[in-house]
Design a binder for these strands. Structure first.
Length: 595
RNA sequence: GGCCUCAUAGUUCAACGGAUAGAACGGAAGUUUCCUAAACUUUAAAUAUAGGUUCGAUUCCUAUUGAGGCUACCA
C-alpha cells in the first residue's frame, strides 16, 4: 500500500535532510482534502524542530526529496505546514487491475496462533432476549469478524447464566400458576414462555410487598420477607443441594429457553464457537480467593467473608467471598478468566458487556493483578451504551422492553411493505421475495445499531432504519445490488470485465477518488480492529456506497463507447461491489444479488 | 456524597491533536420524469459554558452546567 511506501520514504528523507530518526508514528499521512491538489498529505510540523526551518521550507524540502526518490510520487505542493503529494496515475491503475479480482481483498491471513477470546451475548435464562441484547450480540459477532479479518485467531464464547435466583422465580411461578403449560401446548416460544412466568412472579411478588407495606413494614423489609421471595430462595438452596425434583424442573425449563434462544440466534445470524454454563462455572474462583488470602493480598474478616481493599486504586472495598463461603459474581469471573487463561493462553480476553458493569471489570482486573496474574492486563471490556427508543427508555420492569424476536419480525414486515411500495419484488417468486425481506430487514437493523460508536448511548428508530435512502443498511445493500445488475447487463451485452489497459485509459478525478476509497479498505479494517469498533467499518461502507452512487450510473458505464474507459468502469464497479460485500460481511450483514 | 461515561445543525450520526467541523434525514428554493431511485442541483443550520496546555483543540487538562450509569454478602 502506498502509505507504507511513503512512510518509509519520509523517514528516509528526514534522516537524510535533518539527521532525524523519526518514528513511524511521527509520520502523519492523511487523505488530501478535496479542495486541494494532491492525494496524500504529510503533516510536517513534527519535523520542523529538527529542520530548524519554517514549516513551508521544511515541507518543500521533503517534497523535493520524495519527488526525486519515490517512483509513485508525481508532484507535490505546499500549503502552510501541509505537504500535498500527488500519486501517479499508474500507481492507482496498477493497484486496481492487480486487486479487482481478489475476493478476500482487505482481509489478512491468520498471523497468530494465540487466540483472542470474545465473550458476548451471555444471556440470563429467565426471559427472552431484548433490544439491549441485540446490540450486545451484534457488537460481539461483528467485532469477532473484524478481528479475524485483521489476522487474529478468534474464539467466540457465550457464558449462559443458567442458574440463580432469577430462574428460580420463573420455576416457582410456573409450578404454582402454570397448569403444566409447555411450549407445545401454548404455542409460545420456549424463552417467551419462561419469561411469561418471570413476569407473573414479579407481579405477584410486588403485590405481596405492597400488602406487607400496608401492614406497616418498611419497603426494604417487605421485599425480603414476602413469602414468594422466601420460597424462591428455598428453591435455589434445593438446587444447590442437588435436589432431584428441582434440578429436573430446572433442566426442563432451561431446555425450553435454549430452544428459543437457538431460534433467535439463528434469525439474527450469530453463532459461537463455545458455550459455557454458569451452573458449571459458578464454583470456580474460590480457590483463587483462598490463595489470595494466604498471600495476604485479600483479607478475611471475623465473620469469614473475604474482601479486598482497592482504595489505593481509587476503587472501594470489594467482597470476594460471602461469610457463608459461597461465591459472588466477582469470584466466578475470576475463576472463568483463569480457566480461559489456562485453556487458551489468549493474547486478549474481550468481554462484550454493557457499560453498567464498567466498575465490575475494573475491579476484576485489579483483583487479578493483586493475585500476581500478569495477564490481567489482557482483559478488555468492550463497554457499550444503552439503546433507547423514540418512545423513551426501556425498563424491563415496566414492560417497555422491545423483544428481540418481535423487533426482528417488525423489521421483516416493514421491509416487505417498503419493497412492495417501491415495486421492487414484481419479478421475484415467493421464496426469493421472502428471503429478500429478511435480508433487508436484518441489514437495516444491524447497520443502524452498528454504525454508532459502541460506547455511546443510542436511539433506535425502526422506521428510519429501513429507509432505502440515507445512511442505512438497505441503501448500501441496494448499491451493491445495482452494481451487480450493471455487471450482469454488461455481461449480456458481451462487454465483460476486462483487465484495464494502463496506457490508453484516462482517469477522471471522481474515478481516482473511488479507487482511493477502495484502496483504503485494508487500513480501515485494521483501524476497526484496533479500536474494537464496527462503527468504523459501517461508516466506511456508507461513504464508499455514496461515492459510487454520486458518480457512477448504469448509463455512464454501459453507454460509454470508449472500450478502455468502459473496461475501467466495469472493473472499478466490480471492485467496489466486492469491497462493499466485504464490509457488510464484517458487520454480519448479507448482500442481495438483486433487489 | 463518591466514582465513571457522554454532551457537535431541528433530528440521528461522523471527524489518529491538523487545513474552511463532514454526512444523512427533515426545512427552504429550483431543475427534472432518463437510468432498478422523488432523483438531481442550490441553500440555511452545530462543537453546552469558562479557563488552560501549543505552531494548531470538537479531541488533552481544570472548573461549571446538563444527561446517563455505577456505588448490594443480586447476577
Amino acid at each position: 500500500m502506498i502509505e507504507q511506501i511513503l512512510t518509509d520514504k519520509v523517514m528516509e528523507a528526514v534522516k537524510s535532510l535533518y539527521q532525524l530518526d523519526a518514528t513511524a508514528a511521527q509520520v502523519q499521512l492523511q487523505n488530501t482534502r478535496k479542495e486541494f491538489d494532491g492525494d496524500i498529505t504529510l503533516v510536517v510540523f513534527p519535523f520542523t524542530r529538527a529542520s530548524r526551518k519554517s514549516p513551508e521550507t521544511t515541507a518543500a524540502e521533503i517534497g523535493e526529496f520524495l519527488k526525486t526518490n519515490t517512483a509513485e510520487v508525481g508532484d507535490f505542493n505546499v500549503i502552510k505546514g501541509f505537504l500535498n503529494l500527488s500519486i501517479k496515475k499508474d500507481y492507482w491503475l496498477s493497484f486496481l487491475s492487480g486487486n479487482c479480482n481478489a475476493d478476500r481483498f482487505g482481509f489478512l491471513e491468520k498471523d497468530a496462533e494465540q487466540p483472542i477470546i470474545v465473550e458476548y451475548s451471555s444471556p440470563n435464562t429467565n426471559k427472552p432476549l431484548h433490544l439491549g441484547h441485540i446490540r450486545n450480540n451484534l457488537l460481539g459477532f461483528s467485532l469477532s469478524r473484524i478481528l479475524q479479518a485483521a489476522g487474529k485467531n478468534v474464539v467466540k464464547v457465550n457464558l449462559v447464566n443458567d442458574r440463580g435466583i432469577h430462574i428460580c422465580k420463573s420455576m416457582l411461578a410456573w409450578e404454582r400458576w402454570g397448569n403444566g403449560e409447555t411450549p407445545e401446548s401454548s404455542g409460545l416460544k420456549g424463552d417467551h414462555l419462561v419469561g411469561k412466568y418471570y413476569v407473573i412472579f414479579d407481579k405477584q411478588y410486588k403485590e405481596q410487598i405492597a400488602a406487607l407495606v400496608s401492614e406497616g413494614y418498611n419497603a426494604e423489609d417487605a421485599a425480603k420477607k414476602a413469602p414468594l421471595i422466601v420460597e424462591a430462595q428455598q428453591i435455589l438452596q434445593k438446587w444447590e443441594a442437588g435436589d432431584e425434583e428441582t434440578i429436573s424442573l430446572w433442566k426442563k425449563m432451561n431446555g425450553w429457553v435454549y430452544e428459543g434462544f437457538a431460534v433467535t440466534y439463528k434469525t439474527l445470524g450469530i453463532e459461537f464457537d463455545k458455550t459455557y454454563y454458569e451452573s458449571q462455572t459458578y464454583l470456580l474462583g474460590k480457590e483463587l480467593v483462598e490463595k489470595g488470602v494466604q498471600q495476604g493480598v485479600y483479607s478475611r474478616r471475623e465473620d469469614g467473608s473475604v474482601w479486598i481493599d482497592l482504595s489505593a486504586e481509587g476503587l472501594d472495598e470489594k467482597l470476594l467471598l460471602r461469610s457463608d463461603g459461597t461465591s459472588v459474581y466477582m469470584t466466578q469471573d475470576m475463576g472463568t478468566a483463569m480457566q480461559r487463561y489456562e485453556e487458551f493462553s489468549p493474547e486478549q480476553l474481550i468481554y462484550v458487556v454493557g457499560n453498567e458493569q464498567e466498575y465490575h471489570f475494573n475491579v476484576l482486573k485489579v483483583v487479578l493483578k493483586h493475585l500476581g496474574c500478569a495477564w490481567a492486563g489482557s482483559i478488555y471490556h468492550l463497554s457499550y451504551g444503552m439503546v433507547e427508543l423514540p418512545a423513551g427508555k426501556m425498563k424491563s420492569r415496566e414492560g417497555t422492553v422491545v423483544d428481540a424476536d418481535d423487533l426482528m419480525q417488525e423489521m421483516f414486515d416493514t421491509s416487505e411493505a417498503m419493497a412492495r411500495e417501491l415495486g421492487k419484488i414484481e419479478t421475484f417468486d415467493d421464496t426469493e421475495a421472502h428471503k429478500l425481506y429478511r435480508t433487508i430487514g436484518l441489514g437495516a437493523l444491524k447497520y443502524f445499531i452498528l454504525k454508532v460508536d459502541p460506547k455511546k448511548n443510542m436511539l433506535f428508530n425502526p422506521a428510519e432504519s429501513v429507509d432505502f435512502n440515507g445512511n442505512t443498511g438497505p441503501f448500501i445493500q441496494y448499491t451493491y445490488a445495482r452494481i451487480k445488475s450493471v455487471l450482469r447487463k454488461a455481461d449480456e451485452a458481451g462487454f465483460g470485465v476486462s483487465a484495464v489497459d494502463l496506457n490508453s485509459v484516462e482517469l477522471l478525478p471522481q474515478e481516482k477518488d473511488l479507487i482511493r476509497k477502495v484502496h483504503d479498505f485494508p487500513a480501515v479494517v485494521l483501524l476497526a480492529a484496533e479500536m474494537h469498533s464496527p462503527a468504523v467499518i459501517a461508516n466506511y461502507a456508507f461513504e464508499l456506497a455514496s461515492e459510487y452512487n454520486r458518480f457512477y450510473h448504469e448509463l455512464t458505464i454501459l453507454k460509454e463507447d470508449n472500450m478502455a474507459s468502459r473496461g475501467l468502469r466495469l472493473c472499478l464497479s466490480q471492485f467496489t461491489a466486492k469491497v462493499i460485500a466485504n464490509s457488510l460481511w464484517l458487520l454480519g450483514i448479507e448482500v442481495p444479488e438483486r433487489m
